[in-house]
């Protein structure tokens, strides 16, 4: 797939990278600013995680080129995400226990 990288195309890529860079910086300051507002615990957790997810997706999609990746990699990652959710089920189990007790 590397052969297809014409100068023009790379130029287009570079422009995307710079846009993403600016967005990441902006979101970093937004999330710090929000944390200074001293919202409720629940609101701040949700907001911070949403912003982190957006930033993470930007990095994964554009820097790691996941936006145009091969099917096989999507498959492997889907599997990982499934088990990751399984792993996150663990604290949920703990919480239910805490409530039940």
């Amino acid at each position: 797939m590397h052969q297809e990288h014409s100068a023009e195309e790379v130029q287009k890529h570079v422009r995307t990278y710079l846009v993403v860079f600016v967005m990441l910086l902006a979101l970093t300051f937004v999330t710090v600013a929000i944390s200074r507002l001293h919202l409720g615990v629940f609101q701040s957790i949700v907001l911070a995680l949403i912003i982190a997810c957006i930033k993470g997706s930007l990095v994964a999609l554009f820097f790691m080129h996941l936006i145009s990746e091969k099917k096989l990699i999507y498959g492997a990652l889907a599997l990982t995400v499934a088990f990751f959710i399984g792993l996150m089920f663990l604290p949920v189990g703990q919480m239910i226990t805490a409530v039940a007790l």
Partner: peptide
């Protein structure tokens, strides 16, 4: 292989996880 990831707590029935889990 897939299921083997979501059975782990059957080793822990005695830890008081609660009936739901």
């Amino acid at each position: 292989g897939f299921m083997s990831f979501i059975v782990w707590a059957h080793h822990m029935f005695m830890t008081g996880m609660g009936t739901v889990i």
